[in-house]
């Protein structure tokens, strides 16, 4: 405490100009807050900003002798294959549509589950169901692919076995591109809902309980409580999640798509191929570090522009919810 005041006066002496002094003064007054942010700032400088100049690799023909900055510059050659493939539109469309579905519908479902969990008063039931809903998150995508195959495949799949036993015609799921968007969406929900709803559930728990109590005293029904108290208070969380997800809208969950569709079954490409799976498949035997960096840059730029615009819009409407 003593230290603080003595240093405070020193700083004031050192900065004679009024305008500056107010700037530095407010900075000085928040120095503890700055120090509190310092570990995180150092972390991001060391692990995220320092390697960033290496993005240059996307414009080089990399070799071991020259390293990132000594390898020959090759302009946009590394981007060429993506553009020349003629698939760029299809890949971009698939990637964005899937992500939009995951973001919008996925979040809505997570909110619904969180709300319902909040309605449940039986502690034992609540605990067990929440734990159970968390299980899928632990199963690696390799296994999800294996499980899906074991349920859906034509010859031995559980689904087709059931259909055969009931006298129906078995389904050839692995050669019908049309149903895969639903399967992929479902699997993504299956894996993410338990995990994602925790955020909303915690947000509901964070709501000022006096408000809820007051509403109860006023005789509000559960529906009214949800509409007028809970949902509005989840808005902030939802928007932040949305803005975060938008930054990655051009990035797909490679593991999920690759493992579910098998990655090589070209009968399904039309509706299941995304940028990541395409790059992996076509570049797999090429010992090339630059191309993947180039693709990453394309995805980053797209996400960056999208986020800057959405953040600007959000800030216009309600600055409280903006990310920065």
């Amino acid at each position: 405490m003593k230290k603080k005041t003595s240093q405070g006066t020193n700083a004031a002496v050192a900065v004679p100009y009024k305008k500056r002094s107010s700037l530095f003064k407010s900075l000085w007054n928040s120095r503890t807050l700055m120090l509190m942010c310092l570990p995180a700032i150092i972390f991001f400088i060391v692990f995220n900003y320092c390697p960033l100049p290496g993005i240059w690799i996307a414009f080089t023909n990399y070799n071991f002798r020259g390293g990132i900055f000594g390898s020959p510059f090759c302009g946009l050659d590394n981007f060429e294959f993506l553009i020349n493939s003629g698939e760029l539109w299809l890949l971009t469309r698939n990637t964005i549509l899937y992500n939009l579905a995951f973001i919008v519908l996925g979040n809505i479902f997570q909110i619904v589950i969180a709300l319902m969990l909040n309605e449940i008063r039986n502690k034992w039931f609540k605990k067990v169901s929440q734990t159970v809903m968390f299980l899928p998150y632990f199963i690696s995508v390799v296994l999800i692919g294996a499980i899906a195959f074991n349920i859906l495949n034509y010859d031995t799949g559980a689904l087709n076995t059931l259909i055969r036993e009931t006298g129906g015609d078995p389904l050839q799921i692995y050669s019908q591109a049309g149903i895969w968007p639903f399967i992929i969406f479902f699997c993504n929900m299956w894996q993410q809902t338990g995990y994602g709803s925790v955020v909303y559930f915690a947000a509901i728990c964070g709501i000022d309980s006096s408000m809820v109590e007051a509403a109860e005293v006023d005789g509000a029904t559960s529906w009214q409580r949800i509409r007028h108290i809970i949902l509005p208070s989840l808005k902030g969380t939802f928007i932040i999640l949305l803005l975060f997800a938008l930054g990655g809208i051009m990035r797909g969950n490679f593991g999920l798509f690759w493992n579910l569709t098998g990655g090589v079954n070209s009968q399904l490409f039309e509706t299941t191929d995304i940028i990541e799976t395409f790059v992996y498949r076509t570049m797999t035997t090429q010992n090339n570090f630059s191309t993947s960096s180039a693709v990453g840059l394309y995805q980053s730029l797209f996400g960056f522009v999208l986020v800057m615009i959405s953040n600007w819009v959000v800030k216009r409407i309600d600055p409280d919810y903006a990310l920065f």
């Binding site: 294959f81 076509t282 090429q286």
Partner: peptide, 27 residues
């Protein structure tokens, strides 16, 4: 000299990956 044909090779790979698996297994 694989470096100079890389992007064209990737384009070929894309075409092959669409057709070859289905040709190879009679689909």
């Amino acid at each position: 000299d694989t470096a100079s044909i890389e992007s064209k090779q990737a384009a070929l790979a894309n075409v092959l990956s669409k057709y070859i698996p289905q040709l190879a297994y009679g689909k």
